[in-house]
């Protein structure tokens, strides 16, 4: 898929662990792993909003389009 999820990069910038983020946004670590590895088929707006809030960033910082 040409949509790349940059949650890893943002986590490193904010010096936060996956576990902490999963807990903050209220999803399981397994689901966060699906998102990070690019296996996810879709992201709910509510999840995206929670991630942006937790990482203090914009949706564009997390999602990237590459041809």
């Amino acid at each position: 898929m040409s949509i790349i999820v940059n949650v890893d990069v943002m986590l490193a910038r904010r010096k936060m662990t996956s576990g902490e983020l999963a807990e903050k946004i209220g999803i399981t670590q397994a689901n966060l792993s699906i998102l990070k590895t690019g296996k996810a088929k879709a992201v709910r707006f509510s999840t995206l909003e929670a991630i942006c809030k937790a990482l203090d960033c914009q949706p564009g910082d997390i999602l990237e389009y590459k041809e």
């Binding site: 996810a40 088929k41 879709a42 709910r44």
Partner: peptide, 8 residues
């Protein structure tokens, strides 16, 4: 069902 499971 699979797509629903892979929607985060």
């Amino acid at each position: 069902s699979e797509e629903n499971n892979l929607t985060i």
